[in-house]
Amino acid sequence: MQGREILFIVLSLVACFAGLGVVLAKHPIKSALSLVVNMFSIAFLYFTLEANMLGITQIMVYVGAIMVLFLFVVMLLNIGSDRSGMKILDLKLVPAILIALLMFSLISFQVLYPLFGMQYPVADEGFGSPEAIGKSLFSQYVLPFEVASVLLLVGIVGAILLARRKA
């Protein structure tokens, strides 16, 4: 096995376990921290694929901004651990597991099937560099990009409106 493959296996295992931790952790802070670990390991997976820009954006946006906000809110509301708990034997569990399995197989079919028989993918030189991403954002994908920025603006205006109404 190559070093890259070992690295991939380790990182993806960490990501999977952290993802499980998000769902299974009793305490909301620990759940949020597992999500941080998950996003970090996914960012490192991007780094191993030479997609530095994508990886660092993942860390900057999700780990650095959004998850800090999550933690902030959890701490502000001072939510304790979930003591009520879920009963192990519950009739609702059967359809829940069925639907989860269905979703999982659907997604994995969509994602994994085209990858079947593929060797370790190697991107072209300069693929995913800041210049390349900037160029495609402002030429090929300029409309979705601008629409997204308008959406953000709407969000900001809405937030200001809500804050003003209270005062």
């Binding site: 860390i59 900057m60 800041p130």
Partner: peptide, 9 residues
């Protein structure tokens, strides 16, 4: 090639 972004992250 993303050194400045790295600092921010």
């Amino acid at each position: 090639n993303i050194g400045v972004l790295y600092v921010l992250a």
